[in-house]
Design a protein around this nucleic acid. Structure first.
Ligand SMILES: [Zn+2]
Ligand SMILES: [Zn+2]
Ligand SMILES: [Zn+2]
Ligand SMILES: [Zn+2]
Lengths: 132, 132
DNA sequence: TGTTAATTGTTATAATATAACATTGTGTAA
DNA sequence: TTACACAATGTTATATTATAACAATTAACA
């Protein structure tokens, strides 16, 4: 079978919602907001999330247990992700910096271990919050 | 009050156990293993974990919801952490690479946001697992 | 068309983490 | 010493996040 090109019904519902809110959102919050579309149980959400993460349409913000739509057209497969997170307002944005990603993609540890994936989360205060 | 120099009883019990096992361990697994020392409830473990993370004695592996002892004597405050994680055997090791940490500490995103903290997790196969 | 894999639906439960509140211990300074 | 503030503890209950298990349906394709 060829690689899936179109999303299934539940996957599309969940993705549409995540793209609409445009900020990190939690699984159960997604659930509450898509119940009118017929999704009734946590598993239906989690299964859609798993698939969407796998194909790189969304990313999980591990430190927040939340999900965001990918803003980076060239990270089709989510194997190299970096985010900035404001510790005050919780604003999250995906970092797209070719120098950074090149550096990390080529990074090797001292044991010579080669990596096929990484996730980087930066924390600080966003511009708005640092003026408060 | 001066900065705390000595750990409290529960903090010490939890830290001793984490240092002994020497691999990522989950909160409820810690709980089961320190019950003979008098710690009875999840909260007692989580409170100790929070403090130990705060002072840099341990780190949380966010993608695994697990905790490891710090191996890096100079990250007294856990504001700059990097780990390699084997996706097969789940072995985790803390990366101590001054070039990497310098690069990340000084990283600025395009909005000029300055960060005071980061966490980086690399994924791949460790040496053992890549020969299987 | 028959076969396989992906997706869905559903109920129950596991695993991770925090709220709330009462109590006790510990360091500091009047 | 006493009084104060803060850190840590103990305890019960509950919130939040995520998966197990199994049956049924749908989509892709040789
Ligand atoms: Zn992305
Ligand atoms: Zn902010
Ligand atoms: Zn460390
Ligand atoms: Zn391994």
């Amino acid at each position: 079978m060829l690689k899936q090109e179109t999303l299934s019904k539940n996957q599309q519902i969940v993705l549409d919602y995540i793209e609409k809110v445009n900020e990190p959102i939690k699984a159960y919050s997604i659930l509450h907001n898509v119940q009118k579309k017929g999704i009734k149980a946590p598993l239906q959400v989690y299964r859609a999330l798993d698939k969407l993460v796998e194909i790189g349409k969304i990313h999980k913000i591990e430190s927040r247990n939340a999900f965001v739509a990918c803003k980076n057209s060239n990270c089709q497969i989510s194997k190299a992700t970096a985010f900035s997170i404001c510790e005050s307002c919780e604003e999250v944005s995906e970092i797209s910096d070719s120098k950074l990603s090149k550096y990390l993609k080529n990074f090797q540890d001292k044991a010579g271990m080669k990596f096929n994936k990484y996730n980087l989360e930066f924390f600080g205060l966003c511009k708005k919050c640092s003026f408060k």
